[in-house]
Design a protein around this nucleic acid. Structure first.
Lengths: 185, 185
DNA sequence: GTCTGCATGTAAACAGTTACATGATTGA
DNA sequence: TCAATCATGTAACTGTTTACATGCAGAC
């Protein structure tokens, strides 16, 4: 999966591993996290498979940057993957749900404290998403859409943000009602 | 993580690997999937670490079953894990979001078709959750709660189901509004 | 002088998936 | 006879995480 995310971003703009890590952390990273170690090893593999080419660029400073560019083969591979539709739902892995599921043996105040901490974290996450949405709105106002293809990409990316917002709101509502019910006990 | 799920279920009731697979598929499997291969290897590891004991039981039939029981060490390990609260949100991995994110290069009808398929799958999933919730309601009516500890466990498990329902409703709403907006284009 | 950011990687360990493998019973 | 269910496992592979490793520049 990370393979396709990297191809997608490199196609949009030739990038270094470091840049890919940054861009991931502020966009797809919210629903597909990756450590820099995995990014660099995946990039090496993409290069070996001929899906990207890389070349080292020494700037006027001491730093060595390795810029990755997508090859036509890489573009084909990404398009092929996109055109092969998902036939199942993806498998959710939610640590908190597992913990709550087996929390019958725990003391209620401890569970409550954990839920409140999660509430705080999800509230922060919601704020981040809303900030990102505001930035997008500003960008759309100052740069009126010109290229239709790029516009469609932005439309999808905005839709993803809306998912994030809806998800966090749902999560907060669920935590709130669970906390309220626990307080009654 | 699977380690703790298995310990949790074995504590509730000594079970075989096969039974654990069944029970997982119809409860925690919705938010923490595992293949039988992983279940069996994890059980062997739990045994080696002294967290469970197993003994082979030959029934009146040809079948060989290996029943797993939790040890006091295993109980301690699970309690310790539960009492160490989660300090971050868990990392979401949603294949569909990645695909939509990079769908600017795809033809709109193809994206729409994929979204409609996902809509169907999530609708089915919601139905499954609602059926499970109905079963729970029935069970609560016919078996009035007697043991408070067990009752608390059921309360948490019902809360998890409510999460599942809220999640699928949110997902369906998001898919619907995305499909509607795509149709306008 | 120590911490943060830039920038790159490798190695080892752990988790998860797919495929292989066996063998009896029951129902269509 | 063919497929499904019960019941167990191993092997190989892929993906993910944690830890190790380096080194300069600029701020405090």
């Amino acid at each position: 999966m990370l393979k396709y995310i990297l191809l997608g971003f490199i196609w949009q703009k030739p990038s270094t591993g470091y840049e890919l890590k940054q861009v991931l952390d502020n966009s797809t990273g919210y629903f597909w996290h990756a450590y820099h170690s995995q990014i660099y090893t995946t990039l090496r593999k993409l290069e070996q498979d001929g899906l990207i080419t890389t070349h080292i660029k020494n700037g006027n400073d001491h730093l060595t940057r390795r810029i990755c560019r997508i090859t036509p083969t890489g573009q084909d591979e990404l398009l092929e993957w996109l055109n092969d539709p998902l036939m199942e739902t993806s498998k959710m892995k939610e640590d908190l749900l597992v913990r709550v599921f087996f929390s019958g043996v725990r003391s209620t105040p401890e569970v409550e404290a954990e839920l409140r901490l999660q509430r705080k974290l999800h509230e922060q996450r919601l704020e981040e998403y809303l900030d990102l949405a505001d930035q997008d709105d500003d960008a759309l106002c100052s740069n009126p859409p010109e290229v239709p293809a790029a516009e469609l990409g932005e439309f999808y990316q905005a839709a993803i943000l809306q998912f994030g917002v809806a998800y966090e709101k749902m999560y907060l509502n669920w935590l709130d009602s669970l906390i309220t019910e626990l307080e009654k006990v």
